[in-house]
Design a protein around this nucleic acid. Structure first.
Length: 206
DNA sequence: CCTCTGATCTTCT
DNA sequence: GAAGATCAGAGGG
């Protein structure tokens, strides 16, 4: 006999916390994308927290509010997708209350479902760990585009996060470091706001 | 192993 | 006009 097992989507309350807590807590849970009726999924293994208007590395620093970053001001649980370097679509999970622009960048995923679709999409990938080991790569593998910008992960049928574990991660499983590519951000460049699962093959820069 | 660079679009100066 | 929450390919050691 097998235990009846259901996959529960992370609820609204999960996202209504501070960005560093959510960034750490998202590790090990499953990002799911339904695209053209096909399911693509993987475990979140690397994240970065961006802490609203005070954080010099954040797109919302100083209260900046433009057409591009408008989704950062949505209620926690929304997706914030932006085009980086004119080429890559980066996926963030918005957290905290509405009009408080905190977010968590998803930087790497361990693919678990739909690998053949990802390989077809990511020509340069030779092995599974090449598919989503970076924020631009996972955007490509999961076919994230600006159409997903503002989508609510709590209610959407095509993009959401499923609960995988019930217990908190132990400190030994999580590494916290400074964020990648934010050297311009003064003291914020050194804050330990990047989190990844210790020793995981799909992490972008262990 | 490493460093360098092109690609390409939004925002701010 | 410049820089950016990046990636891949080329070239050198």
């Amino acid at each position: 006999m097998r235990t009846a097992r259901r996959d529960f989507r992370l609820p609204r309350a999960f996202y209504l916390r501070d960005a560093a807590t959510v960034a750490r807590d998202l590790l090990g849970h499953r990002l799911v994308r339904i695209d053209r009726g096909r399911r693509i999924a993987g475990l979140i293994v690397e994240t970065e927290a961006y802490l609203g208007v005070e954080d010099q590395a954040s797109h919302a620093f100083g209260g900046r509010r433009t057409e591009r970053n408008e989704a950062m001001y949505a209620l926690g649980g929304a997706a914030y997708v932006f085009l980086n370097y004119g080429i890559h679509h980066l996926l963030n999970v918005v957290v905290a209350r509405q009009d408080d622009p905190h977010a968590v960048l998803l930087r790497a995923i361990e693919p678990t479902e739909g690998l053949e679709i990802m390989f077809a999409r990511r020509k340069a990938a030779r092995v599974a760990q090449d598919l989503c080991s970076g924020p631009g790569k996972l955007g490509q593998a999961f076919r994230i585009s600006l159409r997903e910008n503002g989508v609510d992960l709590v209610t959407s049928a095509r993009l959401f996060v499923e609960r995988v574990r019930d217990q908190p991660l132990s400190n030994a499983d999580v590494v916290a470091t400074s964020r990648i590519g934010v050297d311009y951000a003064g003291d914020w460049a050194n804050s330990p706001l990047r989190f990844y699962l210790h020793g995981h093959a799909s992490v972008s820069r262990p």
